[in-house]
């Protein structure tokens, strides 16, 4: 996909405003599934964070500045534990390492961006990425459309976490067991990927490598060796695949 839009259309002014409205109107229906999902998951996050003793301002601040669903659930646990900055940084890099590969497939799409590029990269969550994979409608400014998708998703997430945080305080609500929402989310993404068939071998590799490393290294430090093992096996698969079928490199494992 190439971008031939004039970057100036990102600017303000009367023409820019009507373009923005048009982009917003066509972006909103596309984001509806994420609206539901982020409000629900955001509420779960807000409740979880409140249960660790961090109120609404913390939920707001985290959702505005971090904006990474699964990591924020892990982060709530980190905030409840001791002060281990290196561990927090490493876990963030590990949990979000998959985002590197989202960026790789959007290099071309984001090429034409100017002022909004920083925000678009910042806001590249799993859900926003999946919406950006579908081409924008023909009649709107592509870059403005993508920007609206990212901003709307961000707002849903912020709103959900604030609502959840307030609920966690106001209701006599026992949050024990709500951490499972993250397990359920990844299980569902796993199932959706499994249905596409083409990634089944990497998926099995992911489970096997993680389970093996969990057994060998223990729950605290298994993520890094597991990622290294996955990378090594995939690299070996690519090398052997290239030897056998030099022309076919697009297939996955």
């Amino acid at each position: 996909m190439k971008n031939h839009e004039n970057p100036n259309t990102q600017g303000s002014g009367p023409a820019g405003k009507s373009l923005l409205r048009q982009a917003l109107i066509s972006a909103f229906p596309r984001t509806a599934p994420v609206l539901t999902g982020y409000i629900f998951l955001g509420i779960a996050f807000g409740i979880l964070l409140a249960s660790k003793g961090y109120g609404v301002l913390w939920a707001l601040g985290m959702s505005v500045t971090v904006f990474a669903g699964s990591l924020q659930f892990v982060g709530a646990g980190l905030l409840a534990g001791g002060f281990h900055p290196l561990q927090a940084a490493l876990i963030t890099l590990m949990v979000n390492a998959r985002h590197i590969f989202y960026g790789l497939s959007l290099l071309e799409s984001f090429h034409g961006l100017r002022k909004t590029k920083f925000y678009m990269i910042f806001a590249l969550t799993d859900e926003t990425f999946s919406l950006l994979c579908t081409p924008p409608p023909a009649h709107v400014d592509k870059n403005l459309f993508r920007l609206c998708v990212a901003i709307l998703d961000h707002l849903y997430w912020i709103t959900g976490s604030v609502i959840g945080s307030l609920m966690g305080r106001a209701l006599p609500f026992n949050p024990r067991g709500i951490d499972f929402v993250m397990t359920a989310l990844f299980t569902v993404i796993f199932l959706e990927q499994w249905r596409t068939r083409r990634g089944r071998r990497p998926a099995l590799l992911g489970i096997a490598a993680a389970a093996l490393c969990l057994f060998v290294f223990g729950s605290r430090w298994f993520l890094i060796p597991a990622m290294a093992l996955i990378f090594t096996v995939l690299a070996a698969a690519w090398l052997s695949g290239r030897k056998r079928h030099p022309a076919v490199q697009k297939d996955v494992a």
């Binding site: 590969f101 790789l104 397990t183 990634g199 993520l223 990622m227 990378f231 995939l234 690519w238 996955v252």
Partner: peptide
């Protein structure tokens, strides 16, 4: 230009990572 291995890895890795995250959630 992006090296072909990186492109290929970008296709394969999301599947493995999500599977790993399921295990990660159950680590404790």
């Amino acid at each position: 230009k992006i090296p072909p291995f990186v492109v290929w890895l970008g296709n394969a890795l999301p599947f493995a990572i999500i599977a790993m995250l399921v295990v990660y959630c159950l680590k404790d």
